[in-house]
């Protein structure tokens, strides 16, 4: 699969030169920190004294550390709820907004707005929505005759946090899907309607197969975001002493590294999380070969 023009002669030099800033950043920033994390995960380091060799100890401890297991399970639960919701809802939004309706630009902007707004600021707004005594959501529930719900208490916090994260992510997903939808040639739909296919049949028989590259891409991105979810969770569920009612893996990494003087444990947790993402990506690429339709 070769795309585009191949660089010739001196162009190659310029190509590398132009790519250099990004590549250097990637090598020293991303790859460098990845290798450093990998190395640190094999040591015990308290940030103050020199690191002590620990071998696989930090990895073995991962399976005995109840707090980390809880955080890890929370991350899995969060991802299981978050990824399908983001993909399905943003696809639906894109389909709904991919037509000639009045004010379509306005709607697209509104749905995209959370993506470009600071998570910290919007989390404060969500705090006002979720509040038990003062929240807007409970005000609505009570005026409809329902009992108020403690949205951010331990029992409901996971669901509440997933809702906020999905809300924050569907705008970006919608843009990805809109791009995928506009790439589908109109004649397919004309042909389908000539054959008597209604809108639902058109969606399942034409749109869905042809938008699979976008679904693939969006699932991958959503999964990576799910494993790294932190900002909304921190803002909405943090307790007084820095713990959370929904501690996720990144939360545990941060606290171990910067609050509990356990850089080695934190690094091992980070590596494990990275491996999990890698495995998931492997599964996704297998799925891509089987199901994704490229024109």
């Amino acid at each position: 699969m070769d795309y585009g023009l191949k660089p010739l002669g001196r162009e190659k030099l310029w190509l590398w030169l132009m790519l250099a800033p990004t590549l250097i950043g990637l090598i020293f920033g991303t790859v460098g920190s990845l290798l450093a994390t990998l190395a640190l995960s094999l040591f015990n380091w308290d940030l103050i004294n020199s690191p002590q060799w620990a071998g696989a100890e930090n990895y073995i401890q991962l399976f005995q550390n109840k707090d980390y297991i809880e955080a890890f399970v929370n991350t899995l639960k969060f991802s299981a709820l978050y990824v399908p919701s983001v993909v399905v809802i943003s696809l639906l939004l894109a389909v709904l907004l991919n037509r000639k309706i009045y004010g379509v630009g306005f709607f697209r902007t509104v749905y995209f707005l959370p993506t470009v707004t600071s998570a910290v600021a919007t989390a404060l707004v969500w705090n006002m929505i979720y509040g038990k005594e003062t929240g807007i959501l409970n005000f609505l529930l009570e005026s409809l005759g329902f009992a108020p719900v403690c949205w951010l208490c331990t029992d409901n916090a996971m669901l509440s946090v997933v809702i906020v994260n999905v809300w924050g992510a569907v705008g970006e997903g919608m843009i990805i899907f809109l791009a995928g939808l506009t790439a589908i040639p109109r004649d397919y739909y004309e042909a389908a309607s000539l054959d008597g296919a209604n809108e639902f049949q058109q969606f399942f028989k034409v749109t869905l197969p042809l938008v699979t590259p976008s679904i693939f891409f969006q699932t991958l991105i959503s999964a990576i975001n799910a494993f790294q979810a932190y900002d909304y969770i921190y803002m909405l569920t943090r307790r007084g002493q820095g713990d959370s009612s929904v501690p996720v893996a990144v939360y545990s990494i941060y606290r171990n590294a910067f609050h509990f003087f356990r850089m080695g444990d934190a690094s091992a947790q980070a590596i494990q999380l990275a491996l999990l993402v890698a495995v998931f990506m492997g599964i996704m690429f297998w799925w891509e070969r089987r199901y994704v339709v490229y024109e």
């Binding site: 208490c153 331990t154 307790r239 002493q241 820095g242 713990d243 009612s245 606290r255």
Partner: peptide, 17 residues
């Protein structure tokens, strides 16, 4: 101290909630 305080202080929040 900090880890201990997190376990105890934050651990009792569900009781008071």
């Amino acid at each position: 101290y900090e880890e201990w305080a997190g376990v105890v202080g934050d651990g009792l929040i569900p009781v008071f909630d």
